[in-house]
Design a protein around this nucleic acid. Structure first.
Lengths: 233, 233
DNA sequence: TAGGCTGGCTTAGGGGTAGTAAGTAACCAT
DNA sequence: ATGGTTACTTACTACCCCTAAGCCAGCCTA
């Protein structure tokens, strides 16, 4: 009842949830992902193991919720970079968002690594899971900007007829999935860019490039220059 | 003693080791990476848990050994593709090896995913670990071919002076690490290609592209065309 | 051939995990 | 005041990694 749309109980619950997330994150950052167990988290917040099941139905669900937090924080950082230059040309905003993405990944390696490393269990793959929702919000930041770019300053695209049929079908499906805001051939360019950018970060965070690089910042910048070329920025 | 360099005991031990690997792999493929536990593997081969410590000092070591197996199998597949066309131009062999890489990854998703997903613990990062050795063998297949390409049909490279200094330093270090078989600017091109190729597979296997693609074969082929362009094949 | 060493295996157990079940105590609304 | 909901507890199952201690068979040597 009352105004605040939150009873005392709700407020307490919310506070506890936040405390749980904070504890889980601390364990992740300080002791690695394996340390984020139901019991350890419960100990951190000062309750005994099974009590946590009043907040999450399973370990998976806790993992999903924490992952969703990270996605939201990352998306917020990217949106911040975008809105800080709201009047700049869209190309400039795209680059700023990409840099914000890497900046967050660099300053939060444990959290960013967790996003990849934590296996996406079936329950977290369901489209209505908090994890999936948050992932979508994250993905849409760059997608929306690309749509804006496509509308105001279309970038070069390949001829759809030149693409193999199986790819064409998948792109058509994806184009439909994003409500046709990009035609298949533009979606193709977007996905290529996304794949390169995100793939680079993915490998960095999974230490798959340690054998050659110690600092990927210049590599990332070069990747950005490539993308700027592709998008004709 | 004797000729065969293997006593009866050694032979038995080798057989048991193979049985252990087979059991671990079966558990991985059939029930996922979490099912590959010391106890479960031991049960599979018909012994009780602690007996496995006569073969591996820890769970990590078992994981590392199985991962090494996968690397070797993958490297063998790639080398097979290379040697099946021993007389073909080196560019053709490179493409064949890349396709063999993806073919193995596609037909062995659990094993290929395990290579990424299984966290590289400190002990498995030591350069003398079986896991590290096997990883190197895998990496060297394409590196060696690129070196051959560079020697016989040099591909276009950027001017080293145009690269940012931090990148230049890292490339110089890497060039030295591979005994100067590629100069820094050629190493840069090689690493760019490697990053794109492997990054794509990495994202595929970690289901980071499921939101857009269901079959990455044509995407991979397009990536290969790009690489062929870059390497002037 | 007898004794000892070694390697392969066992059971028992310590300390951890996820998750269930059942019971208690506090809060809240009627 | 009462009854329902919520938050939490302890106790438990079943599993995990790993250590310790001991049994036993095969091999090596004397």
């Amino acid at each position: 009842m009352a105004a605040g749309t939150s009873s005392r109980r709700e407020r307490l619950r919310r506070a506890t949830l936040e405390e749980i997330h904070t504890a889980a994150r601390r364990l992740l950052v300080e002791q690695g992902s394996a340390a984020v167990t139901i019991n350890a988290v419960a100990r951190q917040v000062g309750m005994s193991g099974p009590a946590l099941y009043h907040y999450y139905a399973s370990h998976d669900e806790l993992v999903g919720a924490v992952t969703a937090d990270f996605f939201h924080e990352l998306a917020t950082a990217m949106e911040g970079a975008r809105d800080a230059r709201a009047d700049a040309p869209v190309g400039e905003r795209i680059l700023a968002v990409c840099r914000a993405l890497r900046a967050w990944a660099s300053t939060h390696p444990a959290e960013f690594g967790w996003i990849f490393a934590s296996p996406i269990t079936p329950s977290n793959r369901r489209p209505d899971s908090v994890r999936h929702q948050a992932g979508q919000r994250f993905e849409h930041v760059l997608l929306d900007l690309t749509v804006e770019l496509w509308r105001t300053r279309p970038f070069p695209v390949p001829d759809l007829a030149d693409l193999p049929e199986s790819l064409r079908e998948q792109l058509t499906a994806y184009s439909a999935a994003i409500d046709g805001r990009l035609p298949p051939e533009a979606a193709h360019v977007f996905l290529s860019c996304w794949t390169r950018l995100y793939g680079l970060l993915c490998m960095e965070v999974l230490h798959q490039l340690d054998f050659a690089y110690s600092d990927l910042e210049p590599v990332f910048e070069e990747c950005l220059r490539d993308l700027a070329d592709t998008l004709d920025l």
